[in-house]
Design a protein around this nucleic acid. Structure first.
Length: 441
RNA sequence: GACCCUAUCGUCCAGUGGCCUAGGACACUCCCCUUUCACGGGAGUAACACGGGUUCGAAUCCCGUUAGGGUCACCA
């Protein structure tokens, strides 16, 4: 009852971190943090052929990116290692010998099978409640194998042994394991150990109700890492799949979630994954995050695009797009015209704004007024432009659109006056001049 | 096939017998704001799978049906 909580995430190094796995890790982590317990990471690499340094690294990177730090496990250590199944052979042998001595296993053509008792097994699940499995009259069900003829171990066996050895108190895993739980419970009993508590969380499905495969959009954590997402947004979204704070709040910071999270309020229904909502949350996070964090998360994407300005230069430019960006990878393209005088002109925008009769002349007029300005801030620029339009009796838009295309080459972009202010008087005048020369009939 | 889980708007959640002519969010449509694109504000479309009970009263409890999903590997 008062034993400290110890949970674990035990992925197999497949080369990617599935969202379903990530959410399982997240719920384990939340449970540990909420209850002041320990979160253990164990790599289930019994299938040695698949174990590669890169595959394991993908798991570490994904968990770290999401902010799910483990208290025991690879690269951290702990008192219950080693944390790779491939290095725990001697431990498994010991438990195997114990099963054999107790007459719980038998040899079947070289493989070792566990004598499963055909009786009712009850699982008191933290999420699903009491679930009774009735095996009393089940005819066709082979005893599960615990060891292959070549001496290698089977998942169910090593999983249970590791959970015993690592003193796991709560096994929180996907619902696909609920049906396997009776076998695990009997294994615990055969070993003379009281089983831990179980909590089976619902699966994550595709839009069409099928199980998500790694090829689906948003199915692996790498998709988010490379897709311009803020990790805090992804974590928030993942929490909302199967759990809710019960008060209609959608955007929740992690500390708040840790405070409120518990298995009792996790749903039992499988959730369909909706990337559109994840995108929306990401945009919300970007809008509301501090400038420093925004700069930090933008920088890698900007560098990738060859933009390497210092923070002082970058900040005012990035600020122009903060309310408009949904994914970080969009930013570089949106602001690229700030970093070159040789920016491209969008033909459609040119056609629409610069080819209109008198557009180039109006640019010249505007340029003349702006050239005389001592202060070049957004408010002044707006006032002067509107004043000029009013004097000539035409709409401000007749100046605004050509000006936008002249200085950026585009029909869409940041607020014009703020964009001009950030660009600065000198560059604005040069760009207008350059544009007029280029598009003069 | 056997066993198990699940069943509220297209999607994610709220709702644990009366406060529900079912609430919020995403998406979608429309309007407002507006120099573009967005943001923001407002409005709208849209659901208790079906059939039986229990009860004065059921989205909420029980049974059945149907439909999804999962497990029954010498995969993890």
């Amino acid at each position: 009852m008062t034993a400290p909580v110890r949970v674990r995430f035990a992925p197999s190094p497949t080369g990617y971190l599935h969202v379903g796995g990530a959410r399982t890790a997240l719920f384990n982590w939340l449970y540990a943090r909420h209850h002041g317990g320990k979160f253990v990471l164990r790599i289930e690499d019994t299938d040695r052929a698949r174990h590669s340094e890169e595959a394991v690294q993908v798991i570490y990177d994904g968990l770290r990116w999401l902010g799910l730090d483990w208290d025991e496990g690879p690269e951290i250590g702990g008192d219950h290692g080693p944390y790779f199944q491939s290095e725990r052979h001697a431990i498994y042998q010991r438990y195997f010998d114990q099963l054999e001595a107790g007459g719980h296993i038998y040899n079947d053509g070289g493989a070792w099978r566990f004598r499963f008792r055909r009786e009712v097994v009850e699982v008191d699940d933290l999420v699903c409640g009491k679930v009774a499995f009735d095996f009393a009259n089940v005819e066709i069900m082979p005893d599960m194998t615990v060891r292959r003829p070549d001496g290698s171990w089977i998942f169910h066996f090593v999983n249970v042994v590791d959970d015993i050895e690592m003193e796991i108190t709560h096994v929180i895993r996907g619902e696909d394991h609920l049906s396997n739980t009776p076998k695990h419970i009997q294994l615990y009993r055969a070993l003379g150990i009281e089983p831990p508590r179980f909590g089976h969380i619902p699966l994550i499905l595709n839009k069409d109700g099928s199980k998500m495969s790694k090829r689906d959009q948003g199915a692996t954590i790498n998709n988010y890492l490379e897709g311009g997402y803020a990790p805090e947004a992804v974590v928030n979204y993942l929490c909302l799949l199967g759990w809710s704070p019960k008060d209609d709040t959608e955007k929740l910071d992690i500390a708040h979630i840790v405070e409120r999270f518990d298995l009792a309020n996790v749903n039992r229904k499988a959730a369909v994954f909706d990337l559109a909502k994840c995108d929306w949350l990401n945009a919300q996070y970007i809008q509301q995050m501090p400038m420093g964090r925004y700069l930090e998360l933008s920088r890698p994407w900007l560098e990738k695009a060859g933009i390497t300005a210092d923070d002082a230069t970058l900040e005012p430019i990035l600020a122009l797009e903060k309310m408009k960006v949904t994914h970080f990878h969009e930013i570089a393209d949106r602001i690229s015209f700030f970093f070159t005088e040789d920016y491209a002109y969008d033909p459609a925008a040119v056609e629409k704004a610069l080819r209109k009769p008198g557009a180039l002349d109006r640019l010249a007029q505007l340029s003349e007024i702006y050239a005389a300005l001592d202060t070049f801030d957004a408010a002044t620029l707006e006032a002067k432009l509107k004043e000029l339009a009013a004097t000539l009796g035409i709409k401000p838009a007749e100046f605004i659109h050509p000006a936008r295309v002249a200085v950026s080459g585009r029909g869409v972009g940041p607020s014009l006056y703020h964009m001009l202010e950030v660009l600065g008087k000198e560059r604005v005048l040069v760009r207008v001049q350059q544009t007029r020369e280029r598009f003069v009939a």
